[in-house]
Design a protein around this nucleic acid. Structure first.
Lengths: 258, 258
DNA sequence: GGCACGCTTCGCCGGCGAACGAAACATGCC
DNA sequence: GGCATGTTTCGTTCGCCGGCGAAGCGTGCC
């Protein structure tokens, strides 16, 4: 039989501009659980060493090495050798974008207030998405800014209202001064199927939270911790409370935070 | 060994909200060449029968049936039974979006004037991307607007020049009135790796084309037909000709000057 | 009803590729 | 130089998955 399988592609085929075959190869590179774990862990744009990724994937070093090589050659990963460590990272933002798009379809459609009795992964509460805040907290924050009238939503992108401009300036946030970048727009989240705040403003808020000690990055993860002080300030400044987060998860949150 | 593979996931695992595993399963569903061919052929939002898809994939009917079942159960496809035919289609726009995102990373960076001697699928010629025009036509139109000096490109977003403003107003297009939305920006396309025109202006042009009978939507598809009148008008108003499309880029540029 | 057709189910085969361990290679620290 | 550590290469084993054909439903047309 002459049918091609994903792996049959040899050098002689590379000339064929065959989008479907290329698509299949890229998808296959993501398809293995070990590799998908690596890729997900790299979604935060941190670079990780081969052994770190082996642990993440739950496989031996040799196996991980093979996986990493494969993904690198497919253009999914880029490699930076540093001393005797070799750091792997996502090759570019298109890769991250593709992964997130896949995650959107991968997550089941219904279970949006997922209401799973199981413990939620910390990633769901608060995490960074590129350079802004996502997860339950990100969504709630986004909603509060709209509710407070700081953001206007009459188009695809958000607009900073005079009130919002003033209020944010008082916090030392004036994202319009940054370079030409979309100021604020709804960024769809895969974990909670609702938008959070992307763009320069979103980035400024994450930075603010980190600088003021409201949020703390968990080492080597996109997960964010909300400090006790953080909850107080978020409540005082934005009216953001634990209870105002998605109910089922709010209950879970209460237990985990100080 | 207790490691999980893509296929080991059983009903008992479904409760586990394990994004990486779900990601892997979805990716695996795309990963096989036969399936990726089916999916690509469905990117136009046409529904196709199982046998049609079997032909597209280049496999037997039974094999195709198994593939289709699998993708349907994963939520990639939706099924509409009609008489003795069973029509399969992409389950939703998120699926299309994920596929397009994957195609962007899958397509090699260089080979952009694809120059495949084979006939280009109609999707490649002209199709809608959200609410604006993509495909070869979209790219060419985008290029013409820049070449005519109607659009200025000194930043991420495009700026409407006075000339352009006037010319478009004469056509009844004044997209600035729909403010609060990005006016115009380059939107990357997977089929032709070059930007076409997104934003309010892109949407306005598509609307214009449809209203004036230059373009017609194919039923149940994102593909666009360009009418004879459409070609005449596009040539007269924008200097856009049929010959200038679907050629290696050198020829494309030369043909469209003036 | 009966035949044709579309599609799916079943059973089998062959091969890709994922996993591991051991050994080779590279780098850095003492 | 030696040793420890990080990473890759090699060789082997094993099982999932894609492929087909034949047979089993279901639908529609004479």
């Amino acid at each position: 039989m002459t049918r091609k399988r994903a792996s049959d592609i040899s050098a002689s085929d590379l000339g064929a501009d065959d989008h479907e075959a290329r698509l299949a190869r890229v998808a296959a590179a993501i398809a293995e659980p070990a590799r998908s774990r690596m890729l997900c862990s790299l979604l935060d744009d941190h670079a990780r060493t081969a052994t770190e990724l082996a642990v993440v994937a739950g496989v031996g070093a040799s196996t991980a090495s093979a996986h990493l090589l494969r993904m690198k050659e497919l253009g999914l990963l880029r490699l930076a050798a540093q001393g005797r460590h070799r750091y792997y990272a996502l090759a570019g933002s298109e890769v991250a974008r593709a992964l997130e798009a896949l995650l959107v379809v991968a997550m089941p459609s219904a279970p949006l207030p997922p209401f799973v009795p199981g413990t939620p992964p910390p990633l769901r509460l608060a995490r960074s998405c590129y350079d802004h805040v996502a997860g339950e907290l990100g969504v709630a924050w986004h909603d509060r800014l709209l509710a407070l009238g700081w953001l206007g939503a009459d188009a695809v992108d958000y607009r900073l209202t005079p009130t919002g401009k003033e209020a944010l300036a008082a916090l030392g946030v004036s994202p319009e001064h940054t370079r030409r970048r979309r100021l604020a727009y709804p960024c769809l989240d895969w974990s909670v199927r609702r938008p959070h705040l992307g763009g320069a403003l979103g980035a400024a808020l994450l930075e603010l939270g980190l600088a003021r000690g409201w949020l703390r990055r968990q080492p080597d993860s996109r997960a964010l911790d909300v400090t006790a002080k953080g909850w107080r300030q978020l409540d005082a400044l934005f009216g953001l409370r634990l209870e105002s987060l998605d109910q089922p998860s709010a209950a879970r949150l209460k237990a985990t935070s100080g």
